[in-house]
Design a protein around this nucleic acid. Structure first.
Lengths: 205, 205
DNA sequence: GACTGATTTAAACAAACGTTTAAATAATCC
DNA sequence: GGATTATTTAAACGTTTGTTTAAATCAGTC
């Protein structure tokens, strides 16, 4: 059963799709343009993925599974909750930054409600929520005496981490250059501190 | 010059478009379906707006101008920064909740980079950034001795406020019912407290 | 009641859409 | 080396896309 080392045109389709979908949106990219940019015959997309929507799901799965792995590894550890959250945010921001386009495709499709895709996304949502419930909400309730729903914390924390990247096209036009490199070095700490202690949390410097 | 009291089919187009775009995404809604659902002839959309993209821009403008008005009114007041931010978040969350679909259409299109639209969006971005610079970043720098860029604060604060709404399709499938009404009553306070003092800010209850 | 401008209509435009087909090539196995 | 897959190709499928056209209907003014 002729299995090659790596079906390299399949990979090229995904890589190209992620870039195009992130830049102009999943729905507005035609398969012909995708095929052309990926240097692949049009029919190959349906050959490998069985349809445009299935290709999107592969991308969503790739991002979600990577994000969930970090969630799992960092939030289930038995360390003080502050340290746990801080190292989680550092790893997660690094992951998001490294896979910017995957993240954008995923986040941009989140609010929409295609039945197939929503069903699929909520599979990941369930798992994430369970981890956040155990890893953050429960120990936090013990600590501060207030129960915050994982349905609030989960979306909140990922939205905070991704905020800067989702606004990138606007910010690049608005912002006078200069924040470039040093900014992203400080970014994970900024998010972690605000999530833990708010903007007042910078007092102690 | 025959001006009617209100061109009611123009309004119907916008109202219908906002709902459809929010639910399934701007790019995946065809003008024929939109016209049908709005009970309007197909050609009316181009007659009133001059194109699909222009219709989208009207929607983006509507949301942005409302949001910016709140930014302006609340953040330029001369009151202690904590109180200022807290009341701003309350008003903004109420606005977002009331105009959920407008917000979703706007936020879902944010990360994409259609030249025309990005140009247009960044007009609003400039204004928002200037207000946040003056209303938050500057007084905050005095208070905590650390300068946080408005290019970080602006996206962060709106992302926090909208997070719960953008994840709605997933959460409705995942979440066991029960958080419904009481949740959204507490939501603005939750966001404001976390932004100001982080999750540790609930100590004092 | 004709005139004017705003609104509405049905019909058509070329272009692009996602998907399928059947035949050709390339790679792998025995 | 012949048989068996896996991959690639060009062509066509029927729909749907956003936009335009020119004629029809409507409302209000003089």
């Amino acid at each position: 059963m002729g299995k090659k080392n790596t079906p390299e045109s399949r990979d090229r389709i995904i890589k190209t799709a992620v870039v195009l979908f992130a830049k102009r949106g999943y729905a507005s990219i035609g398969l012909r343009e995708l095929a052309e940019k990926a240097e692949v015959n049009l029919a190959m997309i349906n050959y490998f993925f069985g349809g445009k929507k299935k290709l999107l799901m592969v991308i969503l799965d790739t991002f979600f599974s990577g994000y969930l792995e970090i969630l799992e590894q960092e939030l289930c550890r038995d360390v003080p909750i502050e340290e746990k959250i801080r190292t989680f945010i550092h790893r997660a921001v690094a992951y998001i930054s490294r896979n910017r386009e995957y993240m954008i495709v995923t986040l941009a499709e989140l609010p929409h409600d295609d039945p197939d895709i929503t069903e699929h996304k909520s599979q990941w949502g369930k798992k994430a929520m369970a981890i956040i419930e155990q890893g953050i909400c429960k120990p936090l309730a013990v600590r501060i005496g207030k129960k915050i729903s994982p349905a609030a914390i989960g979306p909140l924390i990922i939205s905070m981490m991704t905020s800067r990247f989702l606004f990138a096209p606007i910010l690049e036009k608005v912002q006078p250059p200069g924040y470039g490199d040093s900014f992203f070095a400080e970014y994970p700490d900024l998010i972690a501190t605000i999530f833990l202690n708010g903007i007042n949390g910078f007092d102690k410097d």
